[in-house]
Design a protein around this nucleic acid. Structure first.
Lengths: 255, 255
DNA sequence: CGAATCCTTGAACACCTTCAACAGGGGTGG
DNA sequence: CCACCCCTGTTGAAGGTGTTCAAGGATTCG
């Protein structure tokens, strides 16, 4: 969406072919997979042409047949309640997997939508399972990733259940900052690929509250925000305000 | 805790030795494991003497080495925030696994505490992983279980992010009712093993609100509640009030 | 340029929380 | 066996944080 080349973007246009050349190698599924096994894994990956902003990867209720790894761009997932209310359940950055919640039920329980032009690796799940006997580190890594997903969801439950609006937005910005940093982007300046509406929905807040807290943070010189662009000036203050669960601070960057 | 024999309890005293004789066989990890492989799995299970109400299975920050399957009784898990606030992240009934969130990080991210006298199967994780090459259905089932865990957490995120106090308690009671039903207990009358405090904490509500909603439901003849004892009279009304996410209603009892 | 969308700001309101007091088991010890 | 106490749960009233409603400004794209 944003075009300024001096600012780290969530999308990077160069399409890499092989996992071992992928920037996300250490963050994605094939961690600790030998070079020859990598070929096996790559052989089942379907790389589809990039999806455009607003396009769906899959929709709630559809039969499940593959999980997706984000290569570049970003994806939001959300569920619907009876009366039409939406709950955004996650934003997925490069190296993160989408669709894990559907493995158990055989149907997608959420809808996945591209927030910007996004390229993905599609991993047909039954074929992936077939590889497990050949590549034992594959299920191990998948379980590890899913465990972190559970952990992340619990952090979010804490956020939604116990935190004030300020704590929520601070936690959210910190999470984004950390994850972008791990992916080689700047951790103090980035462009949000999601709207205020999405952020508020995700954090259990009204859009207006998100807006207000943003300006409050700006008034307190913690950050500068202009529409989608965020510059974090005082990361320490943000950490203080976020009140992260203990575990995440005692063992930093572990999750 | 409760002694009335006519009412389904969360605890059942008889200790079964083998998985294949366990009432929870179909709900637990060894689904689709052949009889001979079952012996392998059982050989690594450490069955410790039942833990008493208030005792810990593990505490936040401790090194992770095993996951636990609840055989009887119930367990609550919770995390701590910096300032001491607690968030209850889950209640675990017979057949459910505890500790899955620690696999990825190597340390427990939450504390697990018995709500009543509870017996457990302890599964040393490294030994469990070693069995995967011999029993391929084991990792498959574990991933499936973790997927459902993720799904459950997302349902809870929706609850915490979008639902009113009434919807939350209704959803909660329905979830309990369903899970108890699946385990052979009555789905319309049961005793809560957790306090109002725990329920409120879990649902992101003050204790007083939980109390008030309970009496409101009682006034509306939806249920009768006396301390820990709950009798559901109008399950349909409860479902109506709960506004479960669409997926859970279109494909019932799938999660 | 105009329409649509997104974001911001202000004011009134609502839901739930907080504070406070009380009730009622359940256990303990006299 | 009863009195006592502690803990849990209930109920009432006041208060606050965030929501809802309303309007205006900014940016993008046809």
């Amino acid at each position: 969406m944003q075009k300024d080349p001096s600012i780290p973007q969530l999308d990077f246009p160069k399409l890499k072919v092989a996992c071992k050349e992928c920037t996300l190698f250490q963050l994605c599924l094939p961690v600790a997979v030998s070079e020859e096994d990598l070929g096996l894994l790559e052989s089942i990956i379907r790389r589809r042409r990039p999806v455009q902003r607003g396009e769906y990867l899959f929709q709630m209720g559809e039969p499940f047949d593959a999980i997706y790894a984000v290569r570049s761009g970003s994806v939001k997932t959300y569920t619907l309640i009876e009366d039409g209310r939406e709950q955004v359940t996650g934003f997925h950055l490069p190296g993160e997997l989408v669709g894990l919640d559907a493995i158990g039920g055989g149907r997608h329980a959420c809808t996945a939508k591209a927030l910007e032009t996004t390229s993905l690796c599609e991993l047909p799940y039954s074929q992936l399972e077939d590889l497990w006997s050949r590549i034992p580190s594959l299920p191990r890594q998948l379980v590890r990733i899913m465990s972190k997903e559970v952990l992340h969801d619990q952090t979010l439950m804490t956020l939604l259940g116990k935190k004030s609006a300020e704590e929520r937005l601070a936690s959210y910005l910190l999470s984004l900052s950390t994850r972008l940093g791990q992916r080689g982007f700047s951790s103090h300046e980035f462009n949000l690929s999601m709207s205020r509406n999405d952020i508020g929905n995700y954090l259990g807040l009204a859009v207006e509250t998100v807006s207000r807290v943003f300006t409050r943070f700006q008034d307190e010189k913690i950050l500068t925000v202009q529409r989608r662009n965020v510059q974090i000036h005082d990361l320490a203050a943000l950490k203080r305000l976020s009140n992260y669960p203990n575990i995440l601070r005692s063992y930093p960057s572990s999750p």
